[in-house]
């Protein structure tokens, strides 16, 4: 058979469809679809699989003291702080009991707030050591703050009275 027939016709009919043609179509479609540039602002961190790859992601065990009790306690402290932030200044300060309650609630509120920030920003799966460090640092600082406030209440004029004097100085 003539070679001219072999060269062009056979290639077109018998050979599988040219792969580069299909690929080209695909590329142009993808380009048209992704009109905006790809912006990967935060690259993914190193990944790891716990257990085998067929296991589901582990769900931490729930406990009321980290859930509903914690939530209610948090809200009770907040609600208590609302009158206590205004009452001493409105009624005149130098009431050691009110001062003590205010300081206790402030320390509890601050501790819970810092804890929430640590939980939000330092997940244990990503930065376990840093999170543990932060938690221990927070506990230490909460302790020194509580003792410091106690010292100030017992040896000085108290938080509200001191704030009033500084404010009107």
């Amino acid at each position: 058979m003539a070679s001219f027939a072999r060269s062009s016709l056979l290639r077109q009919t018998l050979a599988p469809r040219a792969p580069f043609l299909q690929k080209n179509v695909g590329v142009s479609q993808v380009v048209a679809f992704h009109a905006s540039a790809k912006k990967q602002i935060l690259p993914p961190l190193p990944q790891s699989v716990q257990g085998t790859m067929n296991d589901p992601a582990p769900i931490p065990e729930t406990h009321p003291s980290e859930g509903s009790y914690h939530w209610s306690f948090e809200r009770l402290v907040c609600v208590g702080l609302v009158p206590l932030s205004f009452a001493p200044f409105a009624a005149g300060s130098l009431n050691p009991v009110m001062d003590a309650i205010l300081c206790s609630l402030l320390v509890a509120h601050s501790h819970i707030g810092f804890q929430a920030a640590i939980v939000d920003y330092f997940p244990p799966s990503r930065v376990p050591k840093f999170r543990a460090t932060c938690n221990w640092l927070l506990r230490a600082f909460t302790l020194t703050t509580a003792v410091g406030l106690y010292e100030f209440e017992t040896n000085d004029v108290g938080v509200t009275e001191a704030l009033r004097r500084i404010w009107t100085a």
């Binding site: 509120h109 600082f141 909460t142 020194t144 703050t145 410091g148 406030l149 010292e151 100030f152």
Partner: peptide, 11 residues
């Protein structure tokens, strides 16, 4: 809270 913590600890 940071101000409170730093001040009380410094005190």
């Amino acid at each position: 809270s940071g101000t409170l913590y730093i001040w009380a600890t410094a005190y």
